[in-house]
């Protein structure tokens, strides 16, 4: 048994469109420990969802193409699996929760049947037993058994997301991929759903990859954090390391853009400019054009992840200068 449930090594995914090659993921490296939750943070277009789809080997092809790299799930490379093995792996070993529960559910099937369906697809059980199991799953996510006969439109957004969670967990996967699971929900409901997910994952000894753009959600539920920018990890480490000893200028920029609830500042400090066009990435560090610390050297060569102590890694060549320090850290 390998130490990590998931290891992604040098992953490169491109989308080959008529207009050119979209470089969605450019050499991605990270791993998730057993019974750990890794938060994958980044803005629209950073490649977060493509990462999740790659783990399931579900990148739409064409136009998507996994160019190179390996994805070791429990020691086995997902990218080398046959269709049959993939079918076995999806649902049984890895399950995914999507952002929008309304489009993830079948509107003309009762929720009980939908949960039972996923159980029957992956396990040898009679339809009756599957439905009984489905009812149990509903109870587990805090929905009354009797509602197994209702259709998705009869549920609220938060309830629907609970149903989606029940479906994902029905086959007891080892790894759960959650793509913005609470983004479509109201804050009070978001808090409930996050709490529920945390509890279920702990009880069932699962690992999770939580994809989100919300640093608050990460702080709430993740052990480790990876910050993604233009298809690469720019900073990775434990939540404590990334939040309290932030190292990458982009991560610092994300924190500065957040309105602070504690103090009411006069002005937010946005990150200037926009995410680079993934068809036309800069030659050097892809964050250099927006980076307040960038030097000429940054524009020439892309930085490699470097070790900063503990489990903390950062991809920034400013640290070639041993005295370099982000403004966020300089005043205590």
């Amino acid at each position: 048994m390998s130490e990590n449930i998931l290891e992604v090594r040098d992953l490169v995914v491109h989308f080959e469109t008529d207009d050119g090659v979209v470089k969605a993921i450019n050499g991605l490296n990270f791993s998730i420990g057993r019974e750990k939750t890794l938060g994958l943070v980044g803005e629209t277009g950073a490649g977060k969802t493509t990462t999740a789809l790659s783990i399931l080997n579900l990148v739409p092809n064409p136009p998507g193409k996994i160019k190179s790299g390996s994805i070791l799930l429990d020691g086995r490379d997902v990218l080398q699996m046959s269709d049959k093995e993939l079918e076995q792996m999806r649902g049984n070993d890895v399950a995914m929760i999507f952002q929008d529960p309304m489009t993830a559910l079948n509107p003309v099937m009762t929720v009980g049947d939908q949960i039972a369906e996923s159980i029957q697809l992956h396990q040898f059980v009679s339809p009756k037993d599957a439905f009984e199991k489905a009812k149990e799953m509903l109870q587990m996510v805090g929905i009354a058994e009797s509602r197994a006969y209702d259709y998705p439109h009869q549920f609220s957004g938060g309830m629907r997301q609970r149903v989606v969670i029940a479906i994902a967990l029905a086959c007891e996967p080892k790894l759960l991929l959650s793509d913005e699971p609470t983004t479509a929900l109201d804050v009070t409901i978001q808090a409930q759903v996050l709490e529920l997910m945390k509890e279920l994952i702990r009880k069932r000894h699962m690992s999770m990859l939580l994809i989100t753009h919300d640093l608050g959600v990460v702080a709430e539920s993740c052990d480790d954090v990876a910050v993604m920018y233009a298809g690469k990890i720019v900073e990775i480490g434990s939540a404590d390391e990334v939040f309290n000893q932030t190292r990458h200028p982009y991560t610092e920029g994300l924190f500065n853009s957040l309105p602070n609830l504690r103090e009411r500042g006069e002005e937010l400090i946005p990150i200037k400019g926009l995410m680079p066009d993934p068809m036309n990435l800069p030659e050097g560090c892809s964050f250099a054009p927006r980076c307040p610390y960038a030097t000429e050297a940054c524009e020439k060569q892309p930085p490699e992840l470097r070790h900063m102590g503990g489990t903390h890694y950062v991809a920034c060549d400013a640290y070639n200068d041993p005295d370099f320090c982000l403004r966020r850290n300089s005043h205590g």
């Binding site: 609220s156 938060g158 309830m159 109201d186 804050v187 009070t188 409901i189 978001q190 808090a191 409930q192 996050l194 709490e195 919300d214 640093l215 608050g216 959600v217 990460v218 702080a219 709430e220 939540a239 404590d240 939040f243 309290n244 924190f255 957040l258 609830l261």
Partner: peptide, 26 residues
């Protein structure tokens, strides 16, 4: 109070305030 406490704060470690969840839905 519940609404304020439900906001996930980007804080890790000892400064993190305790959360108070409300039950049920609107």
């Amino acid at each position: 109070q519940a609404l304020l406490s439900a906001i996930p704060l980007p804080i890790v470690g000892k400064n993190k305030p305790e959360r108070k969840l409300i039950r049920g839905e609107i």
